[in-house]
Amino acid sequence: MTSNWAAFVAAEPALARTVEDRFGAFTHHVLATLRKDGSPRTTGIEVRFLNGELWLGMMPGSLKALDLRRDSRFALQANPGSGTEMAGGDVRVAGRAVEVRDPQEIARYAEVVNPPDLDAFHLFRAELTEVVRTYIEDEKYLAVQLWKPGAPLRTTRRT
């Protein structure tokens, strides 16, 4: 089961706001994709939250775009910063990337993002399979929040 960003926001607005804030704290994040041979590839990426979707835009012919065209599964981790910027905790999103080819949808994205070449970029919309937040709670617990489409938010705490 997957969910778009808007459905996640509706289901868990506080967690969604925290995740967006963590991604908004830095420009560059880490995307994991799968190579042809099934081994992982990690690369840098910028992400956008627009019109109820989480967007992944990529340069034309980039290896990460080719990976996603072949196998849409991905994991995305927000830039953790130098260690002191972890307000809100560590956040990760996983799911499937759906390539967008509709010219109107691409134009709507490009109006906001202004890519260097309107005719030369790959655009993917994220369909979420899970969202995870790990953080320190009350200075004594390691807390892990896990959300999956169709399931309630689950929080686990460890001392």
Rank of each mutant, 00 (worst) to 15 (best):
M86L: 13
P149Y: 00
P13Q: 06
F26Q: 06
G57R: 06
F8R: 05
V131F: 07
E105I: 06
S62I: 09
K148W: 06
G38M: 14
D21W: 11
P149D: 01
V19F: 03
L66V: 08
T129C: 10
A97V: 14
G44F: 10
T129I: 06
V30K: 15
I136S: 06
P116Q: 12
R73L: 09
I45Q: 08
F8D: 04
L128W: 02
R101E: 06
G81I: 13
N79S: 15
E127R: 12
R69L: 11
K36Q: 08
G89S: 10
R48C: 07
D90I: 14
V131A: 10
A10H: 13
I45C: 10
N114R: 15
M1D: 05
N79E: 05
A25T: 12
I136H: 03
P116K: 14
G38A: 05
A14H: 04
F74S: 03
E137N: 09
E111C: 02
E20S: 11
E127N: 04
L142C: 07
V91E: 05
R101V: 13
V93M: 04
L56D: 02
S72W: 10
E139K: 15
L50F: 10
D102V: 10
A75C: 09
D71S: 15
R125L: 01
L142D: 10
R158P: 05
E12W: 06
V19E: 03
D138H: 08
G61S: 13
F26T: 12
R154W: 02
E99H: 11
P149F: 00
P80Y: 01
T33M: 10
D119V: 08
R73H: 13
G57K: 08
G83K: 03
E20L: 13
G83P: 03
M59P: 02
R133I: 01
A65T: 00
Q77L: 12
K148S: 10
R133F: 01
E139P: 09
S72G: 12
R73M: 04
T33L: 09
Q104C: 14
W5G: 00
L128A: 00
L76M: 09
L66A: 13
T27S: 11
R48H: 10
R154K: 13
S39G: 13
L128N: 00
A126D: 00
R22K: 03
F49Q: 03
R35Q: 12
A75L: 05
A25N: 08
G88K: 02
R101W: 07
R69A: 15
N51E: 11
L54W: 14
V131K: 03
P103Y: 01
F74C: 04
E85P: 09
A110G: 11
L123S: 02
D138W: 10
S62C: 07
L142N: 07
D21Y: 13
V98N: 01
E105F: 00
D102G: 11
K148H: 05
L66N: 08
D102Q: 04
G44C: 07
I106Q: 13
T84L: 14
K140T: 12
L76A: 07
D37Q: 15
D21V: 10
Q145T: 06
D117C: 02
L68M: 03
V9K: 08
T33A: 07
